[in-house]
Write a protein that binds this DNA or RNA. Structure first.
Lengths: 160, 160
DNA sequence: TATTGTTATACTCTATAACTATA
DNA sequence: TATAGTTATAGAGTATAACAATA
């Protein structure tokens, strides 16, 4: 409270990014809770929409989630009628994942929510600053070897 | 894999921040694992250094961690000889938390690791870009009502 | 009676590995 | 034998609430 002694660490960009990232993730999670899904679910819906007929294991590998966990996540999406498993005809071991009509509608809602979320997050920045931020972010993502569109927070291999 | 259909979502700043934040947190966690502590531990050490003689409940409230979890975290830090609980003389219910000499040394190591972590993260940016990023980040932190220096990711109230 | 800290426990989540079916 | 998917289970981690000590 009363730390008049100001020898504190200067908050660097790394801490800021981590702090903001956790905040963004948390608030987004709260924004979609009424849809009955969690952030990983939302990420999967989005991924399936962008990559139709993905199979579970490919999805799991791409998103860094364990196959056994992916089964549960897809089960939950299927139980909500958002996703369907279609057995592949050519190789009946594969299930091709497709969005149902309800899943498409949910995705539309997610897009609206995401847009609003983004608008609120950046409300304090000018248009130019927003572009700067996005450009800097993409630059780091690229330099760090991260896969665009793939969120590393879905996997939970011990949180170190 | 072969999604030639490019009607994909444009990755906005919110997703970028969340993605980068998770990446930053994960890599930092890996960098400190050899010290035998986790990110929440590091955050607590840092906080105690900046706010000496904090008590557990204040710390828990400030960091958004449940009191029962804070007990465990402090237990672990105490077991490693990094932190000591000193019963307050004026109110014997309080324990004032202080870093041991070993705790101070660990904090020094954390600072070095943090600096290297930051350097690697920003390696692809010019000096000016780094300043831009930090300024933008601080601006958002302020506008979002986040408490500087306090990481919201330590609490785990269901991940939504 | 309120507050600080602690313990106990139930619960959830995750990871490992075994298993089925297809190839 | 290898791969996609699933199930079972043990372990870790978290939240709730009860509790002891002090005020």
């Amino acid at each position: 409270m009363n730390s008049s002694r100001k020898k504190e660490w200067h908050t660097g960009a790394a801490f800021l990014l981590s702090q903001l990232g956790a905040h963004v993730a948390e608030t987004f999670g709260r924004r979609i809770v009424h849809l009955g899904i969690t952030r990983p679910h939302a990420g999967i819906l989005r991924f399936i929409a962008n990559n139709p007929a993905s199979n579970q294991l490919g999805l799991a590998k791409r998103l860094g989630v364990l196959p056994s966990r992916m089964v549960i996540l897809i089960d939950e999406l299927a139980a909500k009628g958002l996703v369907e498993r279609k057995r592949s005809i050519r190789d009946r071991r594969h299930s091709e994942l497709v969005l149902t009509t309800k899943g498409e509608r949910t995705l539309q809602k997610l897009r609206k929510i995401g847009a609003q979320h983004e608008a609120d997050l950046l409300a304090g920045l000018t248009r130019k600053e927003r572009e700067q931020l996005a450009a800097l972010g993409r630059k780091i993502v690229h330099h760090q070897g991260l896969i665009p569109e793939v969120h590393p927070g879905f996997r939970k291999l011990g949180q170190c």
